[in-house]
Design a protein around this nucleic acid. Structure first.
Length: 802
DNA sequence: TTATGTACGCTTTTT
DNA sequence: GCGTACATAA
């Protein structure tokens, strides 16, 4: 059996290519996943590539898992034929399992398949300790990965505490966004500084600088760092770059239209060893293979840039014309959708100006017309959708609920649909929204684990130090944190110093000491425990579980079940990763998306956002909320290129459908709370060819125009408002946010920084800091041959030295 | 130090 | 209409 069998010409070309660069322009449903898996199998099976030399980037962890699965099956099937000389399907299950096991050990285990984030997090686990930032920042291999909430709170702390700015005028969320955007463009603070101007820009750069420093102090990285740090590392360290360049001889990237500048840099560094792609010519036994479709680029809000895809031929390619080129292949035959659905989608996307012209040819029959339904409000819409499902189910006994998907623009829209599905007892699953790993109890337990692995992780420490309650309050923590800041050491180093705790801890000292003992105890067992057992121990020894039991509410019960689920997740992780350790499990938890954990194979209706639907397909697709301001989003209405992105999103949604597509919109929609808003049909509806749509045909007339003007006015007001805020600027800290913090010389027996003291057991030392004032003073003393000690001068056996 | 009240802002999309 | 974050009381 050849891996080229059953492929069309273009697919065969993509699979058979094994040296040099290749861009595959793959329209929706044109079999690109098939091309990708067959290519990897072919590289290994026919061209003798070592699985360990292959790096394949997918868009989700789930896609990575599926690709590994398909690859395993493909190779096992082939092995069956060569080994037993008989087709796979006739082998007894026990032999099938044995063959798959062998493929797993010899091939799939060795492959690096995953998202950009998970792959480069893995690379950093090897080499991050060899990296030193230009500003002297460094990390160890035990680094924590911060999620958006952690990152957000760190930025907020810098803005309000360090820079003393009013978070209303200088919004942490916006600053965080600006920083993330900079990182995704590959800009460090200095480079960002060159891009911005004014007071506001300066403050953003300053926040960025401090934020990086804070992350390093916590030995932590945010999502964007998982891409940016490897870029810096590979640029800086030739030896390491050479190693990975020699190791990954075949690089494959799926969904290339949604890569950003930093990801692009990474690919270049690995493939060309840092040389310019135009002049790189050492392709012997090496390839770079990217697959994408500019019409499906829907992530520009996180700095994805589809011009990178469009520029591939100029960087790596032969720059020849489309019919003469040997570095590009187009997959233009669609095997998924009926020609009706396809034609409508093609007509819609033709309204975009920013695209390479590409025709998606139908290979299937006409099928049914697209159905458009107008409803009174979102509740009626949900009822209409569910009613339609039930009618279809009655008419088609072969229909399974798993064949049906409901797609929407925003997560909040799932609610109305869910209520109707519940009413009619139709099983469903919501993908997205609240991630499993974002639940409070899960984050708490994971924070314990992160702290065990990485004691410098102060964000995690603060999360769990008083959970469950140990009587450690805000003031105590503030005191400890101030001490840590002034000494420039992690908070844990203060907390774990019994002497310091007795001095600074006040009434909370007992709780603090207990907490330290807990962490030390857990840390001792960390060496020889597998992740699932560590989790179990953390939950029990911390008293987390007993507190939930004591609470005895339904909610607490639910939390306990979730924690049990976390243990199961760890068990599963261990099964999939034989050498997996706690660090690895924490990374997978941090990078897992909601879609990854959801079992879409179950026979249930799937509800999800259009973004989450990328790469999937369903026989029946309902696209709801087709209204101006909702889809396309109101934020895109006055910006042509955002509007084009919304249109691509619509194109992605429509092309998910194999057999039938149902569109709907409401005349009135409750936004949030009570306010009912009149709504007009989406502009996209009017762009669909009339002959392909049945039902309540769109009325884009006076009503729509009036509404659009109204929206325009609204957005203008909004803009003016922003300008006013911008014009106001942020000139220094506002009076109400000013908080003075004065250490001040202590009265009475004055302990002054610089004075020398003698301690009965530590010997001579020098006072480096004083904390507090009045009665309650603590001092930090640097003794010879040890770190700073925090002491209560009234209790500690010290004498001033003249 | 913890428990309770209340204002606010949130809804674009995600690794 | 819901959860969070901050303010105020016990």
């Amino acid at each position: 059996m050849s891996f080229l069998a059953g492929l069309n010409d273009a697919q065969r070309k993509a699979v058979d290519h094994h040296q040099g660069p290749l861009l595959v322009v793959a329209g929706a449903g044109s079999g690109k996943t098939r091309a990708l898996t067959h290519r990897i199998a072919h590289l290994i099976g026919a061209h003798g590539a070592d699985p360990a030399q292959i790096l394949a980037v997918t868009f989700t962890n789930k896609a990575a898992r599926e690709m590994k699965d398909r690859l395993e099956l493909l190779l096992a099937q082939r092995l069956a034929e060569s080994q037993y000389g008989q087709p796979w399907s006739t082998l007894p299950p026990v032999d099938q399992r044995q063959l798959r096991g062998r493929i797993f050990r010899e091939v799939t285990k060795e492959l690096w398949i995953g998202t950009f984030h998970s792959l480069f997090a893995r690379l950093l686990r090897f080499d991050i300790d060899k990296f030193r930032d230009a500003e002297g920042l460094s990390w160890t291999r035990q680094f924590s990965i911060y999620d958006e909430a952690d990152a957000q709170s760190l930025v907020k702390e810098i803005v309000t505490q360090e820079l003393q700015l009013d978070p209303k005028r200088f919004e942490p969320k916006k600053v965080r966004w600006a920083i993330s955007n900079a990182k995704n463009q590959g800009w460090l603070p200095d480079q960002l500084a060159a891009q911005v101007d004014g007071q506001r820009g300066k403050l953003t750069v300053e926040t960025y600088r401090r934020y990086r420093k804070a992350l390093a102090a916590n030995n932590a990285l945010d999502f964007d760092d998982l891409l940016l740090l490897p870029v810096q590392l590979l640029q800086q360290n030739e030896q390491i770059r050479r190693y990975w360049h020699n190791r990954f001889r075949h690089v494959l990237v799926d969904e290339y239209q949604d890569t950003n500048r930093t990801q692009y840099e990474l690919i270049k560094l690995l493939v060309t060893d840092g040389r310019e792609p135009e002049i790189f010519d050492d392709w012997q036994g090496r390839s770079v293979f990217v697959v994408g479709d500019a019409d499906q680029s829907i992530y520009s809000f996180r700095a994805a840039d589809f011009t990178i895809l469009m520029g591939f031929q100029d960087d790596f390619g032969d720059k020849a014309s489309d019919d003469a080129t040997r570095t590009m292949v187009k997959l233009e035959e669609n095997y998924r959708s009926t020609s009706t659905i396809l034609e409508a989608a093609n007509a819609l996307i033709a309204n975009n100006t920013e695209r390479i012209d590409k025709v998606l040819r139908a290979t299937r029959g006409e099928g049914e017309l697209i159905t458009l339904t107008r409803c009174d409000d979102e509740i009626a819409e949900a009822e209409a959708v569910v009613h339609r499902m039930r009618m279809l189910e009655a008419a088609h006994p072969e229909l399974r609920w798993g064949d049906v998907a409901v797609l929407y623009r925003t997560n909040a829209q799932s609610r109305a649909i869910e209520e109707s599905l519940v009413r009619w007892r139709i099983p469903y699953i919501v993908v997205g929204g609240l991630r499993f790993y974002d639940r409070r109890e899960i984050k708490d337990v994971l924070a314990y684990l992160r702290l065990l692995v990485n004691p410098a992780d102060t964000v995690s420490l603060l999360r769990v130090i008083n959970v469950p309650k140990r009587g450690i309050g805000k003031t105590t923590l503030q005191r400890l944190a101030d001490a840590a800041n002034q000494l420039g050491i992690p908070l844990w180093d203060v907390v774990s110093d019994a002497e310091a705790v007795r001095s600074l801890g006040g009434r909370s000292a007992k709780g603090l000491l207990q907490f330290c003992e807990l962490i030390n105890d857990l840390q001792r067992s960390i060496q020889d425990q597998i992740p699932s057992e560590m989790i179990q121990q953390v939950m029990e020894k911390s008293g987390y579980i007993s507190e939930l039991i004591a609470e005895a509410t339904d909610e607490a019960e639910e939390r306990r079940r979730n924690l049990q689920e976390l243990v199961n997740a760890a068990l599963q992780y261990q099964e999939e990763n034989e050498e997996g350790n706690l660090e690895g499990f924490l990374a997978s938890a941090a990078l897992a998306s909601d879609a990854d954990s959801k079992d879409t194979a179950a026979d249930r209706v799937t509800l999800m956002t259009l973004h989450s639907s990328k790469g999937l397909e369903f026989p029946l697709v309902f696209l709801v909320g087709m209204e101006q301001g909702l889809f396309p989003s109101y934020r895109s209405l006055d910006d042509p290129s955002s509007l084009e992105e919304e249109r691509r999103l619509c194109y992605v949604g429509m092309t998910r459908a194999k057999e039938r597509l149902f569109l709907s919109h409401a005349s009135e929609r409750r936004l949030w709370g009570g306010m009912r808003q009149p709504a007009v049909p989406s502009l996209f509806l009017a762009e669909l060819p009339e002959g392909l749509v049945q039902g309540d045909l769109p009325q884009i007339g006076g009503v729509a125009l009036r509404r659009e003007r109204r929206l325009d006015r609204l957005t203008r007001v909004d803009r003016d408002d922003n300008q006013r805020i911008k014009a106001g600027g942020v000139s220094g800290a506002p009076s109400n946010a000013v908080r003075r913090r004065q250490a001040g010389p202590a009265p009475g027996k004055a302990w002054v920084v610089g004075d020398r003291v003698v301690h009965s057991s530590f010997g001579e030392g020098e006072i480096t800091h004083t904390f507090g004032s009045g009665e309650k003073v603590s001092i930090a003393v640097k003794f010879v041959g040890m770190g700073p000690k925090i002491l209560d001068p009234r209790l500690a056996p010290i004498e001033p030295l003249e």
